[in-house]
Amino acid sequence: MSEENNNGVTTMSPLQQPILALRELIGFDAAQLVAFLPSQKRHVSLWHQGYSPASIDALADQFPRLYPPGFTRQLSPRDRLPPSISECAGKMFPPFLATSVYRSALHPQGFQDGMTIELGIEGRHLGLAHFSSCTPGAFNQRVRTLARGAQPLLEAALRERLPALHAEQSVPVYFDRQPGRQALYAPRPPAGLDHQRMARALASLKDDTLTAFWLEGRRAFRLHAQKLAGEDVLATLTPTPLPMNMTSAEMRVLSWLAAGLGDRDIARRLCLSERTVHSHVASLLRRLGVQRRAQLSAQAAANNWFVPDARGLILASVPGLGH
Rank of each mutant, 00 (worst) to 15 (best):
P172Q: 04
A186V: 08
G230Q: 05
G120N: 07
L223W: 06
E231R: 15
D176I: 05
A220D: 04
R219D: 09
A191L: 03
E155H: 08
F131P: 03
F111Y: 14
K227Y: 04
G137D: 05
A183Y: 09
H130S: 04
D207L: 12
L215N: 04
P239N: 09
F221I: 05
R219Q: 13
L193M: 00
L165V: 02
L228E: 07
Q141P: 01
A156P: 02
Q112C: 12
L154P: 07
Q178T: 10
M115S: 14
A183L: 14
L128G: 03
H107C: 10
H107L: 15
G230C: 06
T240C: 15
T209C: 10
T240G: 07
R188E: 13
S170V: 01
P190E: 01
A157F: 11
A129I: 11
G217H: 09
L184M: 13
R181I: 08
G127H: 09
Q226M: 09
L153P: 02
A150L: 11
R144W: 04
L210C: 06
Q226A: 13
Q196G: 00
T211V: 10
Q151G: 07
D232M: 08
F213K: 00
H125Q: 12
A167V: 00
T209W: 04
A235V: 15
G114A: 14
T145E: 14
A147E: 10
E118M: 03
R161N: 12
A157R: 10
G123S: 06
A150C: 10
K227M: 13
D176P: 00
G123F: 08
S204P: 07
A201V: 04
A157E: 09
H195W: 01
F111E: 06
T238F: 03
A183I: 13
L193S: 00
D176W: 02
L126F: 15
R148K: 15
G110V: 09
E118I: 03
G120R: 09
R219K: 10
A186M: 03
